[in-house]
Design a protein around this nucleic acid. Structure first.
Length: 866
RNA sequence: GGAUGUUUAGCUCAGUUGGGAGAGCAUCGCCUUUACACGGCGGAGGUCAUAGGUUCAAGCCCUGUAACAUCCACCA
């Protein structure tokens, strides 16, 4: 299909993805090539993909397409995540809206609902991957709850248990009373909430003493208080240590003990201690062998220990309890203040620290291994940008044990069995054969437990499969900085522990996409940008280009419709350059390789653009190799606009129009340059690239089979640069002259030109682009004309410009040159510059100096002659 | 309290080994010249937050300061 005048991205995109997929171009497995492997961060089956996924997938796909074009056997493995708590929250909500809940329908029916949910959303996710154009190998797609992943998860659990790295313990954990499950520390989001600080009177037992005043933000936990703690150095309370006070909530007696944990300056300096509902209190409780009564249920209601408040919700209890204490005359005051309150990441409920029995991973030895590994040069994980390694290290050097059990149903069931008759525990990947005598642990594992194994479980581990042997460890991982400790850190320690290798060599970290005002996109603000809307409006090529090039690595970006539009215009520009070239090249011309062209047929401007091209290929390749897509795209953008379109394509019209011996060289140069540009824009915007590619006179079945351009030394002609730059400067100077003198751009002028090289081969270009009436090459200055002095040449324009104006213009030019000359001169007269700067720089400066000097003399002479 | 990032044109942002400041949008003037008006040509607009330091040379390296942002840890 020929290229139509109008760029219609819908038509451009249509059918291409399906073709690539059907022809197997996404498949890895060519073992004759060097491998490059990557896995997609498994998409949560909770809902549609948002723009955060788009940037993730775009960077991954650019990397993969680039590597494939560079000749690698690329594996880009897709998959989805069951996303335990997140999905369960959605399914719970769905059941609620239907007037039922999971407990009513039971575990089996609930899981069925979950699978149905997963199926429908993984379908949507597939559609979105296709829309984004990512080259994932569908033949290797995985799901965190598929058979292989279950096998891996069970093995890891059992092994860690046997090594003593997984244990079951009774500890304070953060409980989500809505989802009714324990959470790990990093699933808590601290938010500033309006809070109340209640000051209560604790009256003394037996002795006559002013009551103690103790403040709390959570009065309901007073039912679980076991003592009052003061600092032993606190003079105010020196005399009351060992005495007893009355708990105003329930009238129980509380001993006063001393521990230097208490901050003298905070509050009243006296603290109530609730070992079962506060992690710090728990530590104190343990230290002094105190009781730890649990006064709150996991659903946020009060236990029977709370007397008449039993069964009541914690917030309701708080309200009524405060009222009761006030009535008893034990309320001193209430202060309002802002404080940080932990919320559940998923349900947004205020989390409650509750003592309960959970499964944990002992982090210290695993984390130490990560730190050790990062310290060694050999197998360390390289972060791009580097600074993010610090986030990993920081987290690894002070992380608590990881609570991995969740009181949910959707997920990997913990492979632990309790005997019905004895106290035996069986930790095993396989169900016991006499299952009737056992009860399996009710809980499931934290979603991140399986995600942590993603780089190797997807390749067949724990089996020594061909894929595992060939593609592990991965070459690269792409993800956002917000997920480094949720995911990256855990993959690294599990990888090191179970495969003895870091799971990937490089990690590319990107920022998040914010809204146009710089705010984080969120459901509550309703400011999210749906990538599908953007694609429908501007096309996926433009969206990808925008996402990959707008911010520098690791930096957040603002979504900007103007920039997506600008990307669209850019792609249209490339497309039209192709249209122009294909229009002008004879149908039977098929030379696209450097070896195909007779170098003698290349004109100076052909040589110039080829030399520029080879230079830009070199620089872009270097940027691509270090995942610097912003820099790479910027280099290409400048080349496309300034060198390729604005200059070369315009110049080529001269040789294309007339019969001349350079015509063939121009055909070659046009096609060669176009193809190189295409290949360099292709990883960013594959659809439009494919469309243009398939219109080239010589092409393979798809651009996906084509190679990235390589630097071809036989097409580098350094001597062309200076001469053609002079031509360029001359054209620009004449254009400028016309604008400055209010002449129409196509005003025909008589121009003479004096150059210090043979300008003849270039004169036809200058004639055309200056709309010259005549262009005469001269050896001497032309008197009585306007003169423009440029490096390497001087222009004389016959025009009715008066002497005064010319004089003013030349004086201005002279001043400018003079200041440059001075700058250059001072540098060159600086001994230390001459002795310390690299020779290259010194030579360059000397050259500049000579050039300025020549120009200076030329202008000065002209002024004198006037 | 600890850590990181940002501060460059009116706005949003690039600027990688330190060697004459760039883009998009906006703005002003000119042009429908047969690739592109989703365009072309030309222009205006920046003591690169601030104070020092290193260097022949600093937007870039080092130190301090300020403002903003983010993450971690947080006192009942």
């Amino acid at each position: 299909m020929a290229l139509e005048k109008k760029y219609d991205f819908r038509q451009t995109e249509a059918g291409k993805y399906e073709k690539w997929k059907a022809k197997g171009y996404f498949r890895a497995g060519d073992t004759s090539k060097q491998r490059f492997s990557m896995v997609i961060p498994p998409a949560n089956v909770t809902g549609k993909l948002h723009i955060g996924h788009s940037i993730d997938n775009t960077i991954q796909d650019i990397t993969c397409r680039y590597k494939k074009a560079k000749g690698f056997d690329v594996l880009y493995l897709p998959g989805v995540d069951h996303a335990g708590i997140a999905t369960q929250a959605k399914v719970d909500a769905k059941l609620n809206s239907e007037g039922t809940n999971r407990f009513e329908i039971g575990r089996e029916a609930f899981l069925k609902e979950c699978y149905a949910w997963k199926d429908s959303y993984s379908h949507i996710i597939h559609e979105q991957w296709a829309k984004m154009g990512i080259m994932v190998d569908y033949s290797r797609e995985r799901f965190t709850l598929d058979e292989g992943c279950i096998k891996a998860v069970n093995k890891v659990f059992v092994d860690l248990y046997n090594e003593g790295l997984i244990y079951r313990g009774e500890r304070i954990v953060n409980y989500d009373p809505v989802m009714k499950t324990a959470l790990s520390n990093i699933e808590i989001i601290y938010k500033e909430d309006e809070g109340e600080f209640f000051y209560f009177l604790y009256r003394f037992v037996d002795i006559d003493h002013e009551p103690l005043i103790i403040a709390t933000t959570r009065p309901e936990t007073m039912f679980g208080d076991v003592c009052v703690v003061v600092n032993p150095k606190d003079k105010r309370y020196k005399d009351v240590i060992g005495k007893k006070v009355i708990n105003p909530a329930n009238g129980e007696e509380l001993p006063i003990i001393a521990d230097d944990y208490v901050d003298i300056s905070f509050g009243t300096g006296a603290m109530k201690c609730t070992p079962a509902h506060d992690p710090n209190d728990f530590i104190i409780g343990k230290k002094y062998g105190l009781e730890h009564p649990v006064i709150m249920n996991t659903d946020g209601t009060m236990t029977e220990k709370c007397g008449k408040y039993a069964g009541m919700d914690r917030m309701e209890c708080r309200k009524l309890l405060v009222k009761q204490i006030e009535e008893d005359g034990n309320l001193e005051k209430i202060e309002h203040f802002k404080h940080q309150v932990g919320h559940s990441e998923r349900s947004d409920a205020v989390v409650e620290p509750i003592l309960s029995k959970q499964w944990f991973i002992k982090m210290k030895p695993l984390a130490d291994r990560v730190l050790e590994n990062q310290a060694s040069a050999k197998d360390k994980v390289n972060f791009f940008p580097k600074r993010f390694e610090k986030v990993l290290k920081q987290w690894m050097s002070n992380c608590d044990d990881w609570c991995i059990s969740r009181q949910l149903w959707w997920g990997h069931r913990i492979p632990v069995y309790y005997s019905k008759t004895t106290n035996d525990i069986l930790v095993s990947a396989q169900k016991p054969t006499d299952m009737e005598n056992w009860v399996q642990d009710e809980d499931v594992l934290d979603t991140w437990f399986s995600s942590a194994l993603w780089p190797f479980e997807t390749l067949g581990w724990p089996d020594e499969t061909e894929d595992f042997k060939r593609y592990y460890p991965l070459d690269c991982m792409v993800t956002g900085y917000d997920i480094i400790f949720f995911w990256v850190a855990r993959m690294v320690f599990q990888g090191l522990h179970f495969t003895d290798k870091a799971p990937f060599k490089d990690v590319i970290i990107h920022g998040i996409v914010r809204d146009s005002q710089g705010r984080k996109m969120s459901k509550s603000l309703g400011n999210g940008v749906d990538p599908i809307d953007v694609i429908n409006e501007y096309g996926v090529d433009s969206l990808r280009y925008f996402l990959a090039t707008t911010a520098s690595p690791g930096q957040d970006m603002r979504f900007s419709e103007e920039k997506v539009k600008a990307a669209n215009n850019y792609l249209n520009k490339i497309r039209n350059s192709a249209r122009f070239i294909l229009m002008n090249i004879p149908e039977d011309y098929k030379n696209l390789e450097a070896k195909d062209v007779d170098k003698k047929k290349l004109s100076l401007v052909d040589k110039y653009i080829l030399t520029k091209l080879e230079n830009v290929i070199k620089r872009i390749t270097k940027a691509m190799d270090s995942y610097e897509y912003g820099i790479a795209s910027n280099l290409l953008y400048n080349f496309v606009y300034d060198d390729y379109c604005s200059f070369y394509l315009e110049m080529s019209k001269v040789t294309l129009k007339d019969e001349n011996s350079y015509k063939e060289g121009t055909y070659f140069t046009l096609l060669y340059t176009l193809k190189a540009v295409l290949m360099m824009i292709y990883p960013f915007s594959p659809f439009i690239s494919e469309e243009i590619y398939l219109n080239l006179p010589v092409h393979k079945d798809s651009i996906m089979l084509e190679s990235y351009p390589e630097l071809d030394k036989s097409l580098v002609f350094k001597s062309s640069i200076k001469k053609v730059e002079a031509l360029k400067a001359a054209i620009e100077a004449i254009r400028q002259y016309k604008v400055n003198n209010s002449l129409a751009p196509n005003e025909a002028l008589d121009i003479s030109l004096k150059a210090n090289f043979d300008f003849k081969p270039l004169s036809k270009y200058l004639s055309r682009y200056s709309f010259a009436k005549s262009l005469t090459l001269v050896k001497e200055d032309k008197e009585g004309t306007s003169s423009i002095v440029l490096p390497e040449l001087t222009l004389f324009i016959e025009d009715s410009v008066n002497k005064d104006e010319l004089k003013a213009k030349l004086t201005k030019d002279l001043e400018k040159i003079e200041s440059e000359l001075k700058r250059s001169e001072s540098m060159l007269s600086n001994e230390r510059f001459l002795s310390k700067a690299p020779k290259q720089k010194v030579d360059l400066e000397k050259e500049k100096f000579e050039m300025y000097k020549a120009q200076f003399e030329e202008i000065k002479k002209k002024l004198e002659n006037l």
